[in-house]
C-alpha cells in the first residue's frame, strides 16, 4: 500500500512569549488518506487550528518553533523553504476558514479573489481563463447566476453563499487535501446542512482528503471517517469515527458527549458538564492535562494521573482505537456509569 497522503508525526508547535513558552501542540501524530475525512475535535485552545495551520506552513517562522514531521506525499513540510511552501499552499493543500466574511477580502470582488487563487498556480493562464474558471467553480458550488455574482463583493453575498465561495476558492486548483477549519460554525443550521452536503459531494467528486476541524461532535459524526480528539495541545483519543462515538474510552470525550444535548434523545437524559475551565498552555497541569477536571480520576489508583502523562496507545478495543488515559477498563465504566445518565435510551437491556 502507498503512503497516506498526509502523515503528521510528533508535531510540536511552540510560541515563545514574554510570559514563557506556550506549547500549543505537543507530539501530535495522525494521518489522512485520499478520499477520507479526518475530524479533529476540541475546544478553543486545544491546538486543533494551530496544528492544521502548521500543515500549510502558515506560522510565522519568527514567532513559532515547530518540530516533528509533516509529510505530504512523502515530502517534508517542516523546514521547507517559503518558495516551495507557496507552491503547496492553495494548490496541493487548500484551507477554508470559519468566518467567510472576515476571511474574504472586503475590498476585492469575489471573482477576482478566486481568479487570483487560480492564476498564482497557473501562471500561463490568461485573466480571461481565470475568470472563466472562477465562474465555473462558483457554479460548481451552487451559486445561482455565477456569471453575474462573480463581480459582486463579499458583503453582497449571504452567509451561506460566502462560505460556498470560500469553498470554491479552496477547490479551484483541485487540491488533494482540503482543511476546513470550523466551516459551518458561523452559519444557520439549514445553511450548515447545505454546506456539509456540498463538502461531501465535492469530496466524492474530487476524491480529495479532507480534515474538518470543529467543536461540534454532531458535524464530526456525520462527516468524518476518523476522529482525533484534542485537549490542551495533545491527542487524547484517535480512531475510526463510529468506534469513538459508540465506545469512547477517554473521560474528556465522555465529557464532550455528555455536555451536548441533541434533538432526538430521551428527555430524561442528563446534561453533565465538565467541571472547571480549560488549562493554561503556559503552565499545563502535570501528568495528564485533563486530570484537574477529570471526574473519573478516583478510579485510577494512586496519583498516577497527576504525575505521569499517559501514552496514546490502544485501549481494550483493538489496535485502531488509541486513547491517552490511565483508566484500564474505560469501556466498561462508560457503559455502566456514563451512558445510563446521558443516553438512557441507548442502554441495552441486559
Amino acid at each position: 500500500m502507498d503512503d497516506p497522503l498526509l502523515v503528521v508525526e510528533d508535531l510540536t508547535v511552540q510560541f515563545p512569549t514574554e510570559d514563557g513558552v506556550v506549547t500549543a501542540v505537543s507530539n501530535l501524530s495522525y494521518q489522512v488518506e485520499l478520499g477520507k475525512t479526518l475530524g479533529i475535535v476540541g475546544e478553543s485552545g486545544s491546538g486543533k487550528s494551530v496544528s492544521s495551520m502548521a500543515v500549510l506552513g502558515l506560522h510565522d517562522a519568527r514567532s513559532a518553533r515547530i518540530t516533528g514531521s509533516i509529510r505530504v506525499r512523502g515530502t517534508e513540510v517542516v523546514g521547507m523553504s517559503e518558495a516551495k511552501l507557496r507552491k503547496l499552499r492553495g494548490n496541493e493543500i487548500a484551507m477554508i476558514f470559519q468566518d467567510a466574511l472576515a476571511a474574504l477580502h472586503p475590498f476585492y470582488r469575489v471573482g477576482g479573489q478566486l481568479a487570483e487563487a487560480y492564476r498564482v498556480h497557473h501562471p500561463s493562464a490568461s485573466k480571461r481563463d481565470a475568470r472563466r474558471k472562477a465562474i465555473e467553480m462558483l457554479d460548481r458550488v451552487g451559486i445561482p447566476k455565477p456569471d453575474r455574482r462573480v463581480d459582486d463583493f463579499p458583503h453582497q453575498f449571504s452567509g451561506g453563499m460566502r462560505q460556498r465561495a470560500m469553498i470554491a476558492m479552496g477547490l479551484i486548483n483541485d487540491p488533494s487535501l482540503l482543511i476546513a477549519d470550523e466551516p459551518t460554525t458561523a452559519l444557520d443550521v439549514t445553511v450548515q446542512a447545505q454546506i456539509l452536503d456540498l463538502l461531501q459531494d465535492l469530496q466524492r467528486e474530487f476524491n480529495s482528503a479532507v480534515i474538518i476541524i470543529t467543536h461540534d461532535l454532531g458535524v464530526i459524526a456525520e462527516m468524518a471517517d476518523d476522529v482525533l480528539v484534542m485537549y490542551a495541545g495533545r491527542a487524547v483519543e484517535y480512531g475510526p469515527c463510529k468506534e469513538i462515538m459508540v465506545h469512547p474510552e477517554m473521560p474528556y470525550t465522555w465529557g464532550l458527549l455528555s455536555s451536548v444535548p441533541d434533538v432526538t434523545s430521551d428527555t430524561s437524559a442528563r446534561m453533565i458538564p465538565i467541571p472547571g475551565n480549560p488549562p493554561s498552555l503556559l503552565s499545563p497541569p502535570t501528568g495528564c492535562a485533563f486530570h484537574p477536571r477529570c471526574v473519573h480520576r478516583d478510579k485510577v489508583p494512586g496519583d498516577l494521573c497527576s504525575t505521569t502523562l499517559p501514552e496514546l496507545i490502544p485501549g481494550g478495543r483493538g489496535p485502531q482505537h488509541l486513547k491517552r488515559c490511565h483508566l484500564s477498563n474505560s469501556d466498561a465504566i462508560y457503559e455502566a456509569e456514563v451512558l445510563p445518565e446521558i443516553a438512557p435510551d441507548l442502554v441495552e437491556e441486559p
Binding site: 449571504s158 451561506g160 453563499m161 443550521v189 439549514t190 445553511v191 450548515q192 446542512a193 447545505q194 456539509l196 452536503d197 461540534d216 461532535l217 454532531g218 458535524v219 459524526a221 456525520e222 469515527c241 463510529k242 462515538m245 459508540v246 458527549l257 451536548v260 441533541d262 434533538v263 432526538t264 434523545s265 443516553a343 441507548l346
Partner: peptide, 27 residues
C-alpha cells in the same frame, strides 16, 4: 421539520439511522 432534520446528531449518525435531510434551497 427542515430545521430539525438539518441538526447534525451524534447518536443518529453513528447508529446509522440517519434521517433523510430536507434540503431547503436558497436563502
Amino acid at each position: 421539520q427542515a430545521l430539525l432534520s438539518a441538526v447534525p446528531d451524534v447518536k443518529q449518525a453513528v447508529t446509522g439511522e440517519r434521517r433523510e435531510r430536507i434540503r431547503l434551497t436558497g436563502d
